[in-house]
Amino acid sequence: MPHFFLNKRLIILLIGIIILVSLIGFSLRDRDNISRPEQFVKDVVGFGQSLVAKPAHKIAGFFGDMKELQNTYTENKKLKVRLEDVARLEKENVELKKENAELREALDKKESLRDFTPIQATVISRTPDRWYERIIIDKGKKSGIKPDMAVITSKGLVGRVISTSEMTSTIELLSSDNTKNRVAAFIQAKSSVHGLIAGYDRDKKMLLMKDLPIDEEKIKKGQSVKTSGLGGIFPKGLDIGTVEEIVLDQFGLSQTAYIKPSAEFYDFEHVMVVARSMHTGDNKEEE
């Protein structure tokens, strides 16, 4: 009896499979019309798919948007870093161009220094309490630098050495308030007019050339002013500046010329210390 029921169940299962396959084959045929049960099943399945598909698409879209937002954020961070790098490189490029121009001008100037020996140096600091008066360079006694040597940039005279160590030197600028910081100079006119650079006007940012004869009418605005070499310290012919204005002194006994400096006193990095090749005379006007 049990074997009969087992065979009966097997027969029912096989008949069910045959009917299912037949229905599947029937439903897969190309037909213009489908039966109502098929319509019902398709409608139910389609409705179920729509219920599942819409939330699924929204969830997928949400995670897709989040991923895209994360990618955008990452790209923005990378772009910001690149922009910062570009800005840094541009700044470095400007500084390098400026330094290159200074060095090129210094090399050109070096070729024309026939009366003295130039020593190339770099500014390493400025004295904090005398920012506009003194600088320190990276060359000293070991490089042959001595006190009272002239210091120039590619533009012109900026000061003189006042003290040295083995590896560094302190330079007093022409813009210093030190009244003893004097330079023998001359104005290039039809015939040279000699005087002393002795002082600096902070307001006008000009050097003062004092003790000029009052009857010297040949002094004109725009004439060049150079070191005369008569003091026995500075070589002759170092560029100082140009005449900007002529005024009488307070007693009316001499004239003072306001000299626009050729060199910049506050914005330079490279200098040359110049040692005279020959000393002519013992009389020293610069102190």
Rank of each mutant, 00 (worst) to 15 (best):
I119E: 13
K142F: 10
G140H: 05
V86I: 13
P2L: 07
D177C: 01
V193E: 15
I197C: 12
A198V: 00
T168N: 07
T256P: 03
D201A: 10
L230P: 00
S176Q: 10
R126G: 05
K236V: 04
V41Y: 10
K155C: 01
F5G: 01
P128Q: 06
K77H: 14
V243T: 12
T242Q: 13
V183S: 08
R114A: 06
L253W: 06
L51H: 05
T168H: 10
I17W: 04
I59K: 08
G232Q: 07
I24K: 05
G144A: 03
L157W: 04
R202W: 04
V271I: 08
M167V: 05
N100F: 13
L238W: 04
G144P: 01
L103F: 10
I214C: 01
L238I: 07
D148W: 03
A53Q: 12
A101N: 11
L69S: 02
H194F: 15
P128C: 04
I135A: 14
V86L: 12
A56P: 00
E133A: 11
V274N: 08
D203I: 01
K284E: 14
E166T: 02
I15V: 12
L113D: 04
A106M: 15
S228H: 12
M167Y: 05
M206W: 06
T122W: 05
I259W: 13
K180G: 11
Y266N: 14
E102A: 12
F40G: 04
I171S: 02
D138A: 03
G144F: 03
K142Q: 07
A257I: 08
K67S: 01
E244K: 09
R82G: 00
K77A: 12
N283R: 08
F186Q: 07
K190N: 14
V273Q: 10
D249I: 02
E38A: 06
V158E: 14
V151C: 06
G156P: 03
V45L: 14
I34Q: 10
R134V: 00
N33E: 14
V151R: 11
N178P: 02
A185N: 05
D239W: 09
E264D: 15
I219N: 10
R130E: 15
E92H: 10
R82Y: 09
I137L: 04
N93W: 05
A189W: 04
D203Y: 04
S254H: 13
I145D: 11
K155Y: 06
G140W: 06
L69Q: 02
M1T: 06
V273F: 05
L103K: 14
L13V: 01
T280C: 01
E105Y: 06
E216I: 00
T153W: 07
L51C: 08
A275W: 01
K142M: 09
L107I: 09
R88A: 14
L248Q: 07
I34G: 02
K91F: 12
R182D: 02
